[in-house]
């Protein structure tokens, strides 16, 4: 019995020592690449893209693990809100489609203010004055056309309402995709387009899928001949030989900057900041271009096929009314298409 008691005591001491050793935080301030830890990222970027970015990030910061959850922007925000309600927000960093989304998170006081050292070269209209979120790339929405199915030239959104394109249209859902929600807000507030545009699309039996990925796949595969989709998916498909082309509509383009922001409740703020710094750094921006997006930093070239921002006619409206109207817009869209 005495032997057994001794063993128990020894084991307990050993256990306590092991636990103590594990929880010691080694100082890594002076050696950034030795920063350890992990962060949880919620993103609406396509899986392949975010994986490439994380791999590149880990070349500079090999000891920080990035666990990510990928879904459409709207579903991600819902998940964050649901987590907030159950007590713990699990995400550290958010990388989702547009500023309007981040504005509503900011007004719910969920974002950490962090002024990255890499802001040089990024136009100040692309990040929040309070530094709660920063744009990471430029994504425009336009029209994708399968040239094997639709032979004529397509130049504008209005053209899509023509009855000859009945059952040939595909678009992402604003209930899932942040970019689509953003577009909905702007287009319905643009004179000459408005809600009539969406009613016209409905008349042509437009397929409302989920995200932009589905739209791109459908048109590339020939399920429909035309779609409203983000530029990078269409341009990448065209560059890799698919019979599609991307059109910047004559009415104008809708631009989102896919901002990145850190959640106030994050317990891994240090590592999160490293991740933000990396994405905004020259290296991170070069990687962004390599993956296939228009980078947001000056001096980094956009990849082939992409127009640079000065050549694009940008459609926009005041951010505040976009943010305030988003839920109502989504409900109206949902009612229209049900």
């Amino acid at each position: 019995m005495k032997m057994r008691q001794k063993m128990v005591v020894l084991l307990t001491i050993a256990l306590v020592l092991v636990l103590a050793a594990c929880s010691t935080n080694k100082s890594t301030a002076d050696n950034p690449s030795a920063k350890k830890g992990s962060i949880t990222l919620y993103t609406s970027q396509p899986e392949e893209d975010i994986q490439k970015m994380i791999t590149a990030f880990n070349k500079t910061y090999p000891e920080i693990t990035v666990n990510y959850f990928r879904s459409g922007t709207e579903e991600i925000i819902s998940k964050v809100m649901a987590e907030k309600e159950t007590g713990t927000i699990l995400a550290d960093v958010l990388l989702v489609s547009d500023d309007a989304t981040f504005e509503s998170l900011k007004s719910a006081d969920l974002l950490m203010s962090y002024k990255s050292s890499e802001l040089n070269g990024i136009d100040e209209s692309f990040y929040d004055a309070g530094n709660t979120y920063t744009g990471t790339k430029l994504i425009t929405t336009g029209i994708i056309q399968n040239t094997d199915i639709i032979k004529e030239d397509i130049v504008s959104y209005k053209q899509l309402l023509d009855s000859r394109y009945d059952n040939e249209l595909n678009m992402p859902s604003p209930l899932y995709s942040g970019a689509a929600a953003y577009n909905l807000g702007i287009l319905t507030r643009t004179s000459g387009i408005g809600w009539d545009f969406y009613e016209g699309l409905k008349k042509n039996h437009v397929v409302v899928g989920k995200g932009n990925g589905g739209v791109s796949q459908a048109v590339v595969g020939g399920q429909q001949g035309l779609g409203i989709v983000v530029d990078y998916l269409a341009i990448r498909a065209a560059n890799s030989g698919s019979p599609v082309k991307f059109i910047y509509p004559s009415e104008g383009s809708l631009v989102v900057t896919e901002p990145i922001g850190i959640l106030k409740s994050s317990k891994n703020a240090d590592q999160a900041k490293s991740f933000v710094d990396y994405i905004l750094s020259d290296e991170g921006q070069k990687e962004t271009a390599k993956i296939g997006y228009t980078p947001i930093k000056e001096g980094i070239d956009a990849p082939e096929g992409f127009k640079s921002v000065k050549d694009i006619k940008v459609l926009s409206t005041d951010l505040k009314s976009l943010v305030e109207g988003r839920e109502a817009d989504k409900t109206k869209f949902s009612d229209l298409f049900n």
Partner: peptide, 21 residues
């Protein structure tokens, strides 16, 4: 499921929903 506990079923479902058929 959370970020670090994805399952096979959810993975296939998410890939399809994201358009990666």
């Amino acid at each position: 499921a959370a970020a670090n506990s994805k399952t096979v079923g959810l993975s296939i479902f998410s890939l399809q929903q994201a358009g990666n058929y």
